[in-house]
């Protein structure tokens, strides 16, 4: 048990976890074809970056990191609203469209 007591998670652990989460999100964007699931993978990557910002804010003793995460959340909310609006209007034209079907911007 002394080993467990000695091993407290350091900032490096959090940053490595954030890197793994970012990698999983990147793979998801590359392999999935459903635009909605690709969007969820982008959210995964944003959360990975938020996690590393918060870990570094704690380590560096600077509240600015948490402020940045606050703004990232606002921008992510706006991005989801616009993105889902685009997906809805695409899906209304062609139901069941995948990312391959909408490679041309002109509908």
């Amino acid at each position: 048990m002394s080993f467990l007591a000695a091993a407290t998670p350091t900032t490096t652990w959090y940053l490595i976890l954030a890197a793994v989460l970012f990698g999983i999100g990147a793979v998801g964007v590359l392999v999935r074809r459903n635009p909605l699931v690709m969007f969820m993978c982008i959210e995964l990557m944003l959360n990975a970056v938020n996690l590393s910002f918060v870990a570094l804010a704690k380590k560096m003793g600077d509240i600015g990191g948490q402020t940045t995460v606050f703004f990232v959340m606002v921008v992510a909310a706006a991005e989801v609203v616009v993105g889902l609006g685009i997906i809805v209007s695409i899906m209304r034209r062609r139901p069941g469209a995948t990312a391959d079907d909408i490679s041309a911007l002109k509908g």
């Binding site: 490096t12 490595i16 890197a19 793994v20 570094l56 560096m60 003793g61 509240i63």
Partner: peptide, 29 residues
């Protein structure tokens, strides 16, 4: 898979190699 593992590997290498470079600069939480 290669791209994902590459991203993870590069970021982890950067984090581990620069873990002593992160120092306190603010007034503290």
């Amino acid at each position: 898979a290669i791209v994902g593992l590459g991203v993870i590997g590069l970021v982890v290498a950067a984090v581990v190699s620069s873990r002593d470079a992160i120092t306190v600069r603010g007034t503290g939480l």
